[in-house]
């Protein structure tokens, strides 16, 4: 199967895969937000810190109606053994399913293998999929760099805020900060923007509180 890369704002590629929670399909997550993420391998140090960190933000994700689904090119037995080891050694239970993608089917579908890094392991990819199954964000990290969980939460907060309020969010935005009013598309809209109570730097850059 040729390597493909999914695209933003298009339907996330459907799959059916064996996981630590049984066989799941992408469509099983319909009506929830989903963070689909890959890690290079079980029983490796950076991945272990990430799994603990994902488990720690799981309650915050649940508040936002977000499910987690991990993936690596390991067997389901390896996943189970690793999770039991994490629970035994670090007293952290991994509450989400992890795909055992031994045939690299899902990894190939989502472009999770970066041959320049490794031809046999997935990189640290994050795909954020909305309740309608649309791919809304992709973040790729190299193997040597563990992911920032606060950034993943921030991206979800930003997407949910943008969707619910028809706004955009500025650089370094975090929940509670002012948001950006979409730029006007016509001269008339630009003129009418003045006096609407927004905090404007100029006609094209206006913010408001929610």
């Amino acid at each position: 199967m040729p390597m493909s890369l999914p695209r933003l704002n298009e339907p996330a590629p459907e799959f059916e895969a064996v996981t630590t929670h049984g066989v799941v399909r992408l469509s099983d997550f319909r009506d929830s937000w989903l963070v689909l993420f890959s890690h290079p391998a079980d029983f490796t140090p950076v991945c272990t810190t990430e799994f603990v960190a994902f488990a720690e933000i799981y309650p915050e994700l649940q508040k936002r109606k977000v499910e987690l689904l991990g993936l690596s090119i390991d067997s389901v037995y390896s996943h189970i053994a690793w999770m039991r080891n994490i629970e035994e050694r670090m007293k952290v239970r991994i509450p989400f399913p992890v795909i055992a993608d031994l045939n690299k089917e899902v990894a190939t579908l989502y472009g999770m293998i970066m041959p320049g890094e490794s031809k046999t392991e997935t990189s640290r990819c994050v795909f954020i999929i909305d309740p309608k199954g649309i791919l809304r964000a992709m973040i790729y990290y190299p193997m040597a760099l563990g992911r920032n969980m606060q950034e993943i939460l921030r991206v979800i907060d930003g997407l949910q805020t943008a969707d619910q309020n028809g706004v955009a969010v500025p650089a370094n935005w975090k929940k509670g900060d002012k948001v950006i009013v979409p730029a006007p598309n016509t001269v008339e809209m630009a003129a009418e923007r003045v006096g609407q109570g927004y905090e404007c730097v100029d006609w094209y850059l206006c913010k408001k509180s929610l």
């Binding site: 066989v23 099983d28 997550f29 009506d31 929830s32 499910e67």
Partner: peptide, 20 residues
Amino acid sequence: ADLAERSRLPLYRVHSALRE
């Protein structure tokens, strides 16, 4: 969704199990 609420299981688990 009703079964997920009644069983207090995540909806994806219910979808997956119902197939089986």
